[in-house]
Design a protein around this nucleic acid. Structure first.
Length: 448
DNA sequence: AATCCTCGAC
């Protein structure tokens, strides 16, 4: 029965799994702790954390005691939905019931901290693991390296990798993939390549994830031919069994304005009959939005929703960008409101898109109001605003923003700096131009 | 446990 339930749960057939359990009970086979643990994992994953809890009550009612794996499944569920306090509660509950947390309980908790951008706390969990003398699993290092990279501590991740290797740890393929991904993301393509060589030299065979990661790295560094070559090799080796690699190529084509080619790749995705996830849908929706076909974009969104997929912050950002490009600010605002209501972790990119759309349509003051209301801004926010103000010959306002951008330690394009200085000088504010220039120099010295 | 998706300008 357990094997049957497990395989049904794996493919999301929860109702059928329940039928199997009922049938089992009818012929006298009672579900045990393994059955319930399998169910909890699946319900947390496919339905929600509360559905997982309700299975916990069901098992308690049936007189089955939860074990470490029961709690690990629930902790993993809480991590999936970024519910840190739930993770803690479950940990406490475990200890109260004298169920000992194992390395996986700690791994998951660490993962949760990293996910919520609390690397210090995550590292404390790791130290706790060492202190408690629990034997470490290779996944512990993978989670650590990944978490450090994703939180901007690539250098520390590298040091950790080297140090554990010196201590005899043999990196897995996944460890290399994680490190290569982190290095690419922080713009260190060269070091990433060195690790790709090391991966092969140490006897690992690169998998689809390695290829996709390296391909994206090529695109990032504008080595388009090299990237497309990797894609061709993936096809040759049969590594294009899902839509992931196609999405990487299609997005690059979209970003570089090659609409027809992007269309071609997305056509493959559709005709190949891949089981599309929300990311693939977002990629296609983005193409429609960029082409101004908002109707088709919405049609696709509904299709995704019919499949039970939930739109994420990327989906709404793509729509906001597309709507602003067609001048439909009202509907774009509705998406923005929805994003805040849903409490997505950040809508910075969406706001940048909105501001850009307003500027392009000539609504500079509306854009400025939105700019002022933002509590988090990045270099793109400043770039967009400074550039647009210069275009409108509002150089003094542009210089004010440029200075606060520099004060915030953010980089801005050389051409934008030039635009402000030349503009100020050309409209008779040479003293202010000099002031801006010296501030830029000062910032450069401080930065280096 | 890890890969795929969003914004400015050049």
């Amino acid at each position: 029965m357990n094997i049957c339930v497990a395989s049904l749960c794996k493919v999301k057939q929860l109702e059928k799994a329940e039928v199997v359990i009922v049938d089992g009970i009818r012929i006298g086979v009672q579900p045990d702790v393994v059955t319930y643990n399998t169910l909890i994992t699946a319900y947390c994953r496919f339905v929600g954390i509360d559905a997982g809890y309700s299975i916990l009550y069901r098992m308690k009612e049936a007189g089955i005691y939860p074990d470490t794996i029961t709690y690990n499944s629930l902790i993993a569920g809480a991590t999936r939905y970024s519910m840190l306090s739930r993770c803690f509660d479950l940990f406490e509950e475990m200890l109260e019931m004298s169920i000992l947390p194992d390395i996986w309980s700690y791994n998951t908790l660490m993962h949760c901290f990293f996910k919520l951008r609390k690397p210090d706390e995550a590292y404390r969990v790791f130290q706790d693991i060492l202190l408690k003398d629990i034997s470490v699993h290779p996944a512990t290092f993978n989670i650590l390296i990944n978490g450090l990279c994703m939180n901007g501590y690539t250098e520390n991740a590298l040091m950790l990798f080297r140090s554990i290797k010196r201590h005899g740890f043999i990196p897995q393929l996944a460890t290399y993939n994680i490190l290569i991904h982190g290095l690419c993301k922080s713009g260190r393509g060269k070091t990433a390549r060195e690790f790709l060589n090391e991966l092969v030299e140490s006897g690992h065979i690169p998998n689809a994830i390695t290829y996709t990661t390296v391909m994206k790295c090529c695109f990032r560094c504008r080595q388009f031919e090299e990237g497309v070559k990797i894609f061709a090799e993936m096809r040759r080796r049969g590594y294009t069994y899902d839509a992931f690699a196609y999405c990487t190529v299609a997005s690059m084509l979209l970003k570089t304005g090659k609409m027809n080619e992007a269309n071609e790749y997305l056509g493959y995705i559709i005709t190949n009959g891949f089981d599309l996830d929300i990311v693939s849908f977002n990629t296609i929706v983005n193409l429609y939005c960029k082409e101004g076909q908002l109707d088709n974009a919405y049609k696709l969104l509904h299709e995704a929703e019919k499949k039970g997929l939930e739109s994420d912050k990327y989906t709404h950002t793509i729509f906001i960008d597309g709507l602003c490009r067609t001048g439909n600010f009202k509907e774009a605002q509705q998406h923005l409101d929805y994003m805040s209501m849903m409490g997505f972790d950040s809508n910075l990119v969406a706001l940048n898109s909105f501001i850009n759309g307003l500027c392009k349509a000539g609504h500079l003051d509306h854009a400025l109001r939105m700019f002022e209301s933002m509590d988090v801004k990045d270099s793109i926010t400043y770039s967009t605003m400074v550039h647009s103000l210069c275009n409108a010959k509002r150089f003094r306002a542009a210089s004010k923003l440029l200075l606060s951008c520099i004060r915030g330690g953010m980089r801005i394009l050389k051409s934008d700096k030039r635009g402000v200085i030349d503009g100020l000088r050309g409209s008779g504010y040479s003293q202010e131009a000099r002031k801006v220039q010296s501030k830029i120099r000062l910032a450069k010295i401080l930065h280096d």
